[in-house]
Amino acid sequence: MSVNEATGTRPRNEAVPGAEPIIVVDNVSKSFGPLQVLHGVSLTIERGTMVAIVGRSGSGKSTLLRCMNALEEINGGTIEVCGNKVSMGDRPSVKRLRTDVGMVFQSYNLFPHLTVLRNITLALTVVQKKSRAEAEAIAQKVLAMVGLADKAEAYPEQLSGGQAQRVAIARSLALSPKVLLFDEVTSALDPELTGEVLKVMEDLAREGMTMVLVTHEMAFARRLADVVVFMHQGKVWEAGPPAEIFADPKTPELRQFLSSGL
């Protein structure tokens, strides 16, 4: 499996932690009407790392992820992705952002009226103006990466949840993003289907893909994340390497979260 060719990212072992920030979130706040969801969040994510954002429902973790991809407009602070300032109103900047960042959703969001192959080639042909043949070659490659080469002609409703989510990952990968965002991608899946999706994510991480995931899969985060971020009440409450976060929580909130969640 060669994620590198498709994504252009460097292998993990070449990444120099601390040397190359790829996402810089600085003092970001976000409100939905009167409800403030993010209170001055700051976070730096380095190239080639996997960052797991954990926390209770309503702690603002999904909102933060969505802000990173300009799906939500922030009300204060700045977010920089690959050197680009994120702003929903700035069309060229959003366009650049979309080429740098891929996103995978909890509900897969595959296009139901298109085959798996067309789900993947749509953006390649429509946005990147690649020829059909070239797009299909890329699609076959990413499908092979997620172990679904034989499903190219299937429709989303013919897939299991785990397969659908792997197709969604492949669809993002096809565009060679520099960063992949995962928004609770296994939350809708049975435990046995969760495994096959996590396996794909693990492969990507080993290949050096920069990944930010909002997740409830504590064991996965503990084993593979470089940094675990605990969010609470719209703030980054604690952040650090998983060994520290899980073994030695500094705050009572994290301690309570870990004991209730595991």
Partner: peptide, 11 residues
């Protein structure tokens, strides 16, 4: 979600 996914793909 369909529209958001398409936005994220750059359409």
């Amino acid at each position: 979600g369909q529209i958001e996914a398409a936005e994220c793909l750059g359409l």
